[in-house]
Amino acid sequence: MRFHERFAEKNRRYSGNSLAVFWIPGMILVGIIVMALLVIAIPVLRNPEYLAGAASDPVVFQAFLVTFLAGFCAVGILAITGTPLAYALSRTDAPWKGIVETLVDIPLVLPHTVAGLMVYLLFMSRGLLGAPLGEIGLTFEDAFPGIVAAMVFVSIPYYVNAVREGFGRVPVQLENVARSLGASPIRAFVSVTLPLTTRHIMYGALLAWGRAIGEFAAVIMIAYFPVVISTLIYYRFNTGGIAESQAIAFLLILLCLVLFFVFRFLTRRAGVYDDRS
């Protein structure tokens, strides 16, 4: 075990020498992201009154709250429904598997206004799902559940594909060993497969959450209210001009940087076993 680790360590350090070849073109992308951040950050920091105004504005605060909470709810729903789907897809050889995989990818290619219209048709209060759910008191139009529905729809492929990739890396033999020792399929899944896939689940959740909170077109079709952060940025651009919308965008970036960093810190040890390959 120790030898193995030392070997891995040595291996990593050795390859570090020739990475320049990869860093240089790669840095173009990183450079573009950094420059994009700077062009937002510099004007905002030059006019701090807009930033202070945005930071102390209850409308902005509420929009952040709604957006982040809806994002968490969307990820929660994806975790409950998407994780079993990802597992089933990674383990089945059924001939119709390809059809399901294609369907899962559909939200990825749809223009977001079209995705928004589909969500609207389905969940509006006279819609296929919206009408029966409305009977039991769950309304989607211009309501929090509508935001969550749109967010879930657009982020399905991000979550399911990332998690399925993780399940695919867990050797089926490990599950079979657990089964041969008397574990039920559910138990084998929960105590063997799931822990080994933690990192991919976390990654899928992060991708889906990021996708969800950035969604604009699909959300405003079904739920223009309560206002999510992307709606507010667009709205303030129209009503107050670019300085106001940039200040809110800057706050969004700061909050997301902090959240992503905390997330990476908290999950840095999670699911290290499935890193072996």
Partner: peptide
């Protein structure tokens, strides 16, 4: 301008409003 019930619907502009109208919402 957030309506308190679903009698009135507000959207950003014509494109969204007319999508809702043609969808029957």
């Amino acid at each position: 301008m957030r309506p308190s019930d679903d009698k009135v619907v507000i959207r950003d502009g014509s494109i969204y409003l007319l999508s809702l109208l043609t969808a029957g919402g």
